[in-house]
């Protein structure tokens, strides 16, 4: 069943064409990887999806409902949660309270008490339960990444947008995080992830979409996409990325 349909999304900032005619669909339970060189428009696409700014053209259909142009808090209540690339924990709140914000104001719209209970489960899933009463500001980077994830999960989303959750982690942390992501999917949550760690995204994704200069240049199974000459060309502008792509 289709969870998300993105139809012809176009977004300009002044003279910059950030997204042009981006279309794809996402099936329930799928993990879809979103890759592309820096500046390809991946984060802009996320911002459009969760309502940070409206698209100039195109529609976003989520669970059969047109959510184009809704403010971010309405989108959150429909069941789309997001983990940021640059972690943004609420530093002066405890880890538990951070997760509760998701629970209270996300799709669940839980009461404080319920949200506190449910936060336990989510924190257990991401392995932060023993730090529940610590201030979020005191966590290290890897822990903050996990908190970011927990906060998004706390809202019981249907769809989880992950923006480079692996960036800045060491190899063993990456493996652990990939495990967690698989577990999240197993619990029935659909995932759309932006990722630069190519090998990881190729192993974990069911399908991959490649953006370049705001356009979808390839779409398909990870193996197909890697061998697509257009994709390789796009990455050649970025030799490091190309190298990583070829390794993957």
């Amino acid at each position: 069943m289709t969870l998300l349909q993105v139809q012809g999304i176009t977004k300009r900032f002044g003279g910059l064409q950030a997204l042009s005619e981006v279309s794809f669909t996402l099936a329930e339970g799928e993990i879809l990887g979103l890759i592309g060189p820096n500046g390809a428009g991946k984060t802009t696409l996320f911002n459009v999806l969760n309502g940070v700014f409206p698209p100039d053209k195109g529609r976003v259909i989520f669970r059969g409902e047109d959510i184009t142009g809704l403010p971010p808090y309405e989108v959150a209540r429909k069941g789309i949660a997001r983990a940021y690339q640059v972690v943004r924990p609420l530093n002066d709140l405890t880890v538990r309270e951070n997760v509760m914000v998701g629970g209270c104001f996300g799709r669940g719209c839980l009461s404080l008490g319920r949200a506190a209970q449910e936060a336990e489960g989510v924190l257990a899933l991401v392995g932060l339960l023993d730090r529940a009463d610590q201030l979020a500001g005191s966590l290290n980077v890897a822990q903050k990444k996990r908190l970011e994830l927990a906060r998004a999960l706390g809202s019981h989303p249907y769809l989880l947008l992950l923006d480079e959750v692996l960036a800045g982690l060491n190899p063993s942390e990456i493996t652990a995080m990939l495990d967690t992501i698989q577990q999240i999917r197993a619990s029935g949550i659909t995932i759309l992830m932006i990722e630069h760690v190519m090998q990881a995204v190729m192993t974990v994704s069911d399908r991959v979409i490649v953006l370049d200069y705001g356009e979808v240049i390839a779409e398909g199974l990870p193996q197909e996409v890697v061998n697509n000459p257009q994709v390789i060309e796009a990455y050649l502008g970025d030799p490091k990325m190309a190298e990583r792509l070829l390794q993957g």
Binding site: P71, Y73, A76, A81, L93, V101, F105, R151
Partner: peptide
Amino acid sequence: EDEDAAMVMGVK
């Protein structure tokens, strides 16, 4: 703590 992040988490 972070108004934009709060909105994305569903705070009106």
